[in-house]
């Protein structure tokens, strides 16, 4: 991870002076590097020996692309802060935030050099993230179910971790594992938000306000009375809606336990060494338990 941190700092130092301050603000704020860790763990699950250069490059680029998704999310959600600091658009303005995110994507592809399989995977990721964001917004304030939540989360965070797994193992064997890890991460994020935690970097007010289908929401709106509050276009009674979501937390936690078990089974079936993958599952599962 230190190597990755140094690579990011070196990359920023070589970027345009015009955007350098914004890039430093975004990248040197202390990331969890969970996506690069997923790439490394998936590599370790099927290979032995030191991490090769191509995998290090992939880890750098996934961190770049992940930050693009954060910048765009923050603009769309109108979030003033992330991880306790001002978001990029709040600090530097929307124009610079949007232009910087385009710059990062172009730089990411340049960093991949001749890694054609990596380029294909990152292209898949950017396309799926774009589709997922639009789908999530289109499906807001609708009385949908858990299966719909799985689809949205699977395309959103799920696609990110699916691609991480493929970048790490390079054979496609761990793709399903990656998808399940992403689903678990998304669900823990949803539950953590309802618990009002800062552990994952944000509160849940935006999702509640915008009528986003989170895991606790999908469980709570099975009750038609709660569904009516959730679907209200004026967004009235948000406090009451929040209480219904809180009441569904035990059920949401047990659903997350099921996803975690699916992930462990997948790791045991398809990894030569499942230990690093199971460690990822345990680490992710803890995110909603603080």
């Amino acid at each position: 991870m230190n190597d990755l941190r140094e690579r990011i700092a070196r990359w920023i130092a070589g970027c345009s002076e015009e955007l350098r301050e914004a890039l430093e603000w975004q990248f040197l704020a202390g990331s969890k590097y969970f996506r690069p860790l997923t790439i490394f763990s998936c590599y370790r699950a099927v290979n032995k020996g030191p991490i090769p250069e191509q995998i290090m490059q992939s880890a750098l680029v996934i961190e770049l692309f992940h930050n693009v998704s954060l910048i765009i999310d923050d603009i769309v959600d109108r979030s003033p802060t992330r991880r306790g600091r001002a978001t990029m658009h709040t600090k530097f303005g929307e124009l610079q935030a949007l232009m910087t995110s385009g710059y990062i994507v172009a730089e990411g592809y340049l960093q991949l050099k001749d890694d054609l399989a990596g380029i294909a995977l990152f292209s898949e990721l950017m396309k799926r993230l774009g589709v997922a964001e639009c789908m999530q917004w289109r499906l807001r304030r609708q009385p949908l179910g858990i299966e719909d939540w799985r689809k949205v989360a699977g395309e959103d965070t799920g696609s990110m971790f699916e691609v991480c797994a493929c970048l790490g193992d390079r054979s496609g064997r761990l793709r399903t594992f990656g998808g399940l890890l992403g689903l678990l991460y998304h669900g823990c994020d949803d539950v953590g938000d309802v618990k009002g935690l800062a552990a994952l970097g944000g509160g849940g007010e935006e999702d509640l306000r915008d009528g986003i289908l989170t895991l606790p929401a999908a469980l709570a709106i099975r009750d038609p009375a709660v569904a009516r509050i959730f679907c209200d276009p004026e967004g009235r009674n948000l406090a009451e809606l929040g209480r219904h979501f809180v009441a569904k937390l035990p059920e949401a936690e047990s659903y997350l336990d099921k996803i975690a078990e699916e992930g462990r089974t997948e790791a045991r079936l398809f990894a030569a060494d499942p230990a690093p993958l199971i460690a990822l599952i345990e680490q992710t599962r803890q995110l909603s338990r603080y």
Binding site: G145, I146, R222, D223
Partner: peptide, 8 residues
């Protein structure tokens, strides 16, 4: 409510 859960 039961129908919604059953459909899910």
């Amino acid at each position: 409510s039961g129908r919604l859960t059953a459909a899910d």
